[in-house]
């Protein structure tokens, strides 16, 4: 169990980062992807700017393939907290018929997520975008700064990152350049769950085990969230008690068999687990350094 003191120190660090952006950037946005990290990030932002409302909108880049429960949770959250939400869909991608099943995970992610995100940032002219990424998620993320400078065409140059000593963030940038800012950089998966428990933060029910309709495919358990997931010959849908460790597009997100139905169960299961959180993500396995490549091209 992460101690309360440690969680409160992480909380204070994140609040400092959130405020630093609002104080120095012109038009920030919070990229809200509905998962547990976004839930924590949103919770911290509410604290950072209390008693006022959030001084920036939320934006969800919707690939149109999110779990239905994610979308309804998103809409409830926005209503409950009185937030300003932008939902952006890459309509060109939709028109071209891009989808995770026929186009494959790489093309789908690039068009609907990366390109969609860049379109939306350009359309609204945001100069700083908060993301919920953590350094413990993946080896190239472990290398990224808290304030990650992106060129006018949103590219990340991992070999020319700005030094970031102490908490002295260099927030100067040229016109057209922007920042991706990661207030949860120093949090681990354990910290996130411990904090959710400590602060009673609502999360999407998909994180908790329940009987759900799944098919076995390429070694992963894929939930058939709607009729769009075609069944291959010989495949059948089973009701299995499963949950998700990360959430994304449903055809690309593997479930884990589990009976963990409460926060305490989840935390206990995570501590005992020998597999990393991103293992269930099909998109991470497209190549040896696929995350870094995607980030260079403008992904989160």
């Amino acid at each position: 169990m992460t101690s309360r003191g440690h969680l409160k120190a992480l909380e204070a660090e994140s609040i400092f980062i959130l405020r630093e952006v609002v104080a120095t950037c012109e038009k920030p946005v919070l990229l809200y992807s509905i998962g547990k990290d976004s839930a924590v990030l949103l919770h911290l932002a509410m604290k950072a700017f209390a008693p006022g409302k959030l001084p920036f909108p939320l934006m969800h880049v919707d690939t149109t393939w999110k779990f239905r429960e994610m979308v309804s949770f998103r809409d409830e959250t926005v209503k409950r907290l009185g937030l300003d939400l932008i939902v952006h869909v890459n309509e060109e991608g939709v028109k071209a018929g891009v989808n995770p099943i026929a186009s494959g995970s790489a093309v789908h992610t690039d068009v609907m997520k990366t390109q969609g995100l860049k379109q939306a940032l350009d359309k609204y002219g945001f100069d700083a975008a908060f993301g919920g990424a953590r350094r413990d998620e993946e080896k190239s993320r472990a290398k990224e700064r808290i304030f990650s400078l992106r060129s006018a065409d949103h590219r990340w140059d991992p070999k020319a990152q700005r030094p970031e000593p102490w908490a002295l963030f260099n927030t100067r940038k040229r016109k057209g350049e922007s920042f991706r800012v990661f207030p949860l950089s120093n949090w681990t998966e354990t910290d996130v769950w411990d904090y959710i428990a400590l602060e009673n933060i609502p999360v999407v029910p998909l994180y908790f085990a329940k009987p759900r309709p799944v098919v076995y495919r390429n070694g992963a358990l894929i939930m058939r969230d709607d009729e769009r997931l075609p069944l291959h010959p010989g495949e059948t849908v089973h009701m299995k008690t499963v949950r998700f460790r990360t959430l994304g597009c449903y055809p690309l997100t593997g479930a884990v068999e589990s009976t963990a139905a409460t926060l305490d169960d989840i935390i206990a299961e995570m501590r005992a687990s020998r597999a990393s959180e991103r293992q269930g993500r099909v998109i991470d396995h497209d190549g040896a350094s696929s995350m870094e490549l995607k980030k260079q091209e403008g992904y989160f």
């Binding site: 472990a142 991992p158 070999k159 120093n186 870094e292």
Partner: peptide
Amino acid sequence: VDGLSAEREQGITIDVAYRY
């Protein structure tokens, strides 16, 4: 720990990695 492709190819560290 050397998580960047340039680091892996050259067998050196270029930027700081934070690990927990």
